[in-house]
């Protein structure tokens, strides 16, 4: 977080008020760590009898070593253990795409993957794609074309959009491709088909397609 030390983000306020609620109700298990306290806090408590397993992952260019309950998804490892909360949990069942990240350059649903499956893998989240000061061209295009409304699906949309253009470049075929042997192009129909794993409750689809087309250098 940048800016004055006394400023609180919406997330900090939610975390603090959540902790207050927990204290008031007498609950003893807190799994969602408070960002400021995270560095000093012990790892979240595992259920009794669960053996934690070590895993090393390269996240946004940084090597991280975690000790996890085997049930921890890649999504929960990113959000709850590494506090990379840009990646969002939507449906948690692979249906909405809000959790989309890239593993070894390929987009996947991080909610349907165990963190332990990714030992030694290179993971890129929205935080690794660009920053507020150095936006990725796709992030800049989403802003320019108003490719979001509430913003919740946006990190997943942007990760997917970046990967989609790479997939087209690599010749990965799609359902709307007329000729399987021809190189796919970033046409409007192609972009829409390839983005079908990312839902947007606000319906910003037309603007998302415009943003992607601009980055791809094609009219949507």
């Amino acid at each position: 977080m940048t800016g004055a030390s006394c400023s609180l983000s919406r997330r900090d306020v939610l975390a603090v008020s959540g902790a207050a609620l927990v204290a008031a109700s007498g609950a003893v298990l807190v799994t969602a760590a408070i960002p400021q306290a995270a560095a000093a806090a012990p790892a979240p408590l595992a259920n009794a009898g669960v053996k934690l397993m070590p895993v090393r992952i390269e996240v946004n260019g940084r090597q991280v070593a975690l000790s996890l309950d085997p049930r921890t998804t890649l999504l929960d490892a990113l959000r709850e253990h590494l506090h990379l909360t840009g990646t969002k949990k939507g449906c948690d069942h692979g249906q909405c795409g809000a959790c989309t990240v890239m593993v070894e350059g390929q987009r996947i649903n991080s909610c349907l993957s165990l963190a332990l499956q990714h030992e030694g893998n290179r993971v890129t989240t929205i935080e690794g794609i660009g920053t507020p000061d150095t936006l990725h061209p796709m992030q800049a295009a989403f802003i320019k074309h108003d490719g979001y409304q509430c913003g919740y699906c946006t990190p997943g949309q942007i990760c997917s959009a970046v990967a989609v253009l790479a997939e087209i470049k690599a010749g990965v075929p799609s359902h709307v491709q007329a000729d399987l042997m021809a190189a796919p192009t970033p046409s409007g129909a192609e972009l829409r088909e390839r983005m079908s794993g990312n839902l947007c409750r606000c319906g910003a689809y037309a603007n998302i397609a415009d943003a992607m087309a601009e980055v791809a250098g094609e009219p949507a």
């Binding site: 692979g94 987009r107 649903n109 997917s160 990967a163 359902h175």
Partner: peptide, 27 residues
């Protein structure tokens, strides 16, 4: 995506890309 599948077994390539989403097919 395999060029031999696209060329000789087009029905297989077509069936795969008709299913699921890009994210799921990658995994």
């Amino acid at each position: 995506s395999d060029s031999r599948v696209r060329r000789d077994y087009g029905v297989l390539s077509r069936a795969i890309v008709a299913g699921a989403s890009g994210q799921l097919r990658n995994k």
